[in-house]
Amino acid sequence: MQQYTYLLINIFTVIICFIFSFDKRIRFDQYFKAFAVAAVLTAIPFIAWDIWFAARGVWWFNKDYTIGVLLAGLPVEEWLFFICIPFSCTFTYFCLRKFFYISWANGFNNMIVFATCVGCILIALLHHFQLYTLVTAVAATLTMIFLHFIVKAGWIGEASLVYFCLMPGFFVVNGVLTGTGLEAPVVNYNPHEILNIRMLTIPVEDAVYGYTQFLLVIYFFKLFSPLPVLQKAAY
């Protein structure tokens, strides 16, 4: 069963959200196509990033925890990761907006963008020799600039709030992938390419990486949704 570890992580991450997508009170199934487009468009640069880093030895995957099928040097489970995790995150965002008033968080848009950009730029300048740290900081900064200043996204605050609410799941999934509860990590990191600041076993860069990916998925999801993403407050 050990070789199915990463595959099972993906399945358990998505299965409950997928089942409840068909609930008549939620009907997230109406947004499957929009999500698929959003996930694929976001996955393209992130998978390219993944392949590049794996080739350079920034991170690598423990073959003991995968089924052994590789695509472009990545385990097939890693490809599924870019569908399963965004699905659960987008589903959670959709449900929280549908059943709760969270648009109040958008009042903090400017503060969030400013803090993220300044923090990431400083980190990039101070740690430009550590590749994962540098690329993650630059990607987060460019994403914020794109969303806030170019497309004028007004939902950064509420998306950030939802990402914070997703943190327990983040710690469980990324914790297992980075070795929590296992004899060895599923994903290993070159210590010379990260800050080596860990949240339990999780490199802090992973949280910024996930945040950037989440924001881009939500942007494309909204862009291609056939219906408004419902909320108690006006969209």
Rank of each mutant, 00 (worst) to 15 (best):
E77I: 11
F82A: 13
I83R: 00
C84M: 15
S88Y: 03
S88A: 15
T92Q: 05
L96C: 10
R97Q: 09
F100Y: 12
F100S: 11
Y101T: 14
A105I: 01
G107Y: 04
F108K: 10
F114D: 08
F114A: 15
A115H: 11
A115Y: 13
C120N: 15
H127N: 13
F129D: 13
Q130N: 07
L131W: 06
V138P: 01
T141A: 12
T143A: 15
H148E: 05
V151R: 05
G154E: 12
E158W: 09
E158K: 07
V162W: 08
F164L: 13
F164M: 10
F170R: 02
F171I: 10
N174Q: 11
G179F: 10
G179R: 02
T180N: 07
G181K: 00
G181R: 00
G181L: 04
L182Y: 01
P185F: 05
V186Y: 02
V186R: 03
N188W: 06
P191T: 11
H192P: 01
I194F: 08
N196K: 11
R198E: 05
T201A: 08
I202T: 05
I202G: 03
V204Y: 01
A207I: 14
V208G: 06
Y211S: 09
T212S: 13
L215V: 03
L216R: 03
L216W: 08
V217I: 12
I218H: 09
